[in-house]
Every structure is written in C-alpha cells, then in structure tokens.
Nucleic acid binder design. Structure first.
Lengths: 221, 221
DNA sequence: ATCGCTAATTTTGCATTCAAAAATGCGAAA
DNA sequence: TTTCGCATTTTTGAATGCAAAATTAGCGAT
C-alpha cells in the first residue's frame, strides 16, 4: 500500500466522522484494519497532524481534532478570503471550457435546489467552488483551499438549512456566475465575501463545535 | 530529542539553504548529525513534505523542494491575498497595544531605510507584516501565512533592491500604517494587494527559481 | 569506444523489537 | 469508604533488522 494511500484512507475515516472529533485514535485497531504496521501509520498521523486534522499529544497518543466555535469562525473567514482571491484570479484566467463547466454545474445545482435534494445540492455547490478555485490556476491556492475545506467539511454538512437561507444562497450563486461571465473580478470578490459570510453565520447559529481541543491537554494534567 | 524539534531543525537547515533546493536529502548524514535513527527522521521528512518544503519521490528518496517561477508567482499571489485579508480583519480587531507595536516597528524600519541597512530593513518589514497577521486574531490565517512565507523566505532575501523600489516600498508602508490607524479596511486591503504586487514583480524580474520540480521526477525516468 | 545487459551495492520502506513514559489496578492506610 | 502509593500493564517513541526497489558498476557485444 502506497504511503499517500494510507494518509488518504485515514483522512477519509476522519472526514467521515468515523472517529468522533476529540476521540482517541486507536492505533492498534487501525493497523489491523489497514493491514500495516505502526511505522507507516505513525508517519501518516504525523502528516495529518501537520494538516491539523489530528492532534498529537506527546507520550499521550493522538486524537481526532476537535473544533471550537472560534476555530470554525476562523476557518470560514480564511475560506472566504481564499474563495474571494480565487474568484478575482479566475476572472482574469478562466478559459471558456472552464466557464462552460461551471455554468453546467450551476444549472445542475439549481435543479437540485428545485427538487429540494439537499445532499446533491451541497455536492454541486462544492463542485462549483472547487471549479472556481481551479480556474484561478494557482496550485498553492488550491492546496490551501483543500486543506481548509477539509477541516470544515463535517461542519458544513450539519449546517441547518432554512428555506429562506437556501433561496438566498441560490440567488447569490446566480450573481457569482454572472460576475464570472462578465469577468468582473472586484464584483465577484465582493459577492464571494458576502456569500461566505452568510454561510458562516449559519454555522455559528447552529452552535456547532462548542468544545475545545485544549481540554484534551488539560484533562490529563 | 522532541519530535517537533527534529522537524524544526531540519526546517531550519532547509530555510538556511544549507541543502540546495533540488538536492537530495542525505538521510544517513542527517541521522548522524541530529543523533537520531532513521525512523524519527523519516517521520519529520513526511511532515515537511506536507508543508511542501520537501519533495518525496516514492522509492527514490526525498529532495529539498525547488520552486519554479510559476511557484513563486503563485506563492506571492496567495501571500498577497492572505495579507490583504489579514489587513481587513486587523482593522476590525486590532488593539491599541498592537497598533502601538506596529507603529514602533514601522519607525524602526524607516530608520533602517535611512541607514540603508537592507538586512535590518527586511527584518523589520517582516515583523510588521507578521504583526498585522497576528492582529487579525485568526490562528488559521496565521498558520497558513507562516507556511506560505516559509516557502518564499529564501527568495525574498535574494530580491535585488533598487533605490527606486526601496523608496516605493517605504512609501507604501507609510500608507499601510495610515490605513490601519484609520481602521480603513477596504483601503488597507487595496494597498496591501498593490504592495505585494510590487514585491512580486521584483522577484519575477530577478529571474529567481527558474527550474522545476518535475525534472526531479523526469530526470530519473 | 560505446551501448546494452546483468549482477552487486546502495537505499528505501516496512515490520519487528526494545526502552521509556503513561495509564491502570490493587492494596493499605486514614 | 475514600484516597494515596506502589506495582503491573499498556502504550508510546525510537532503534534495529529485513525485504524490495533503485542505482551503480562491471562485463561483454557490436
């Protein structure tokens, strides 16, 4: 099994919430499950710790990272900034093919909205944002974006969605597509900031992630 | 020796340019030098690979990452975006104490400019940008910023500095301080973007980093 | 002399092993 | 009964050893 595959598998396990945030990561069990020894597993955990998905307590094992309200706010703030930057850059660089792709994805997403299929809607939403980031043509940006969204992912899915907010989000997406097509970078930047500010408010209102990683350190002191 | 210490030591070795970018990392030699065995060393290399400071070629060892012109442009672009975001947030949240600190650092930097002490000027410049990022009160942002700046650091230092550019940079810094003091977030955001665009142009003009990591893969094919 | 092929050497990646630190359990004393 | 202390067990962190892959060296053929 390739090194990256191990990291990917564990990342998926964490993102799927299979290991509760804050819970101890059962080293032995994962070894058996992935059919590897502790050496590559521990290497993978170190990588995931660098990504902030795993918390490493010296001599006290590793735990799945927990996110506080503050962490979530911070992550959304940065995500917002990255998406705005991506939007600006995408306006300068997006190809017709990429534009086409985003338009298609947008249409599909609107369709999911009409059918009130939240899961599919979310999937489409993510596809569009990722496509915009990709269209920015900046791998460094893509990498940071991927790392930030990975950390928010679970929270994003549990966001409660009222009909009003959903309608607003779709409306904002129309505006995003529009600005992109007009290559209006400053306009798009502004919309994206607003768009994500709304998302952020949803999450905070949901009161998700009300605990703190620092317990994990304190609790054993 | 603590795990993080190993990562830190190797990171410093890389940032100091002690291992030429693109050069193979001598596993055995580093083991002797740090007085550790291969296991912790390899774990550290994996972490640094996650930070993109090290490139891991499966079955072909690890090398210090090399940066292409494109990589540099991408890094500066993102750095610019992060600094702009930090500036906006800092306007909302900066404390008087932090403001004071930045003002002091700015004065010191201007003094270094007057004395034409480039090294100290650079140091002061970095201090100010870091202080602005810190004032944004967003640890996620701080983390990403640290990782991006670490990757550009070497390039930043080799930037050739003409008197004109230097004067412009100082002028821009005056504007930054001014906008911060007025808590003018949109104005500051704009200035920071311009400021870093200038820096970026310097670097590109320097023709630094004209090679590509993909050689490292190709060269052994 | 150069190119191609095979064998030896080196290096990488992983499993195993060993030592140290932390968690646990048990018993004694308050 | 509760709490403190000690011994046992478990778990973590690192070193060593081993198998597989890649690099290098040597040899022969053209």
């Amino acid at each position: 099994m390739l090194h990256e595959e191990v990291v990917g598998r564990i990342r998926d396990i964490l993102l799927d919430g299979e290991i509760t945030p804050g819970a101890r990561i059962p080293e032995r069990e994962l070894c058996e499950r992935l059919q590897i020894s502790r050496t590559p597993l521990r290497e993978a955990l170190k990588v995931l710790a660098a990504e902030r998905l795993v918390l490493l307590l010296p001599h006290r094992g590793s735990r799945a990272a927990k996110l506080t309200d503050k962490d979530m706010r911070d992550l959304f703030e940065v995500c917002q900034g990255l998406e705005a930057l991506a939007g600006e850059l995408a306006c300068e660089r997006i190809t017709d093919a990429e534009m086409e792709l985003i338009a298609t994805a947008h249409a599909a997403m609107v369709q999911h909205y009409r059918e009130r299929d939240l899961i599919q809607y979310y999937r489409g939403n993510r596809t569009i944002h990722e496509a915009i980031v990709a269209a920015a043509g900046n791998p460094v940006l893509s990498g940071l974006y991927a790392s930030v969204t990975a950390r928010i992912r679970r929270a994003r899915y549990v966001t409660p969605m009222t009909p009003q907010r959903w309608a607003l989000a779709v409306q904002e997406h129309e505006a995003i597509l529009n600005a992109l097509q007009r290559r209006d970078s400053t306009g798009l930047s502004h919309i994206l900031r607003t768009h994500l500010r709304h998302k952020r408010e949803e999450v905070l209102q949901a009161g998700f992630a009300d605990t703190d990683n620092s317990d994990l350190i304190r609790e054993s002191a």
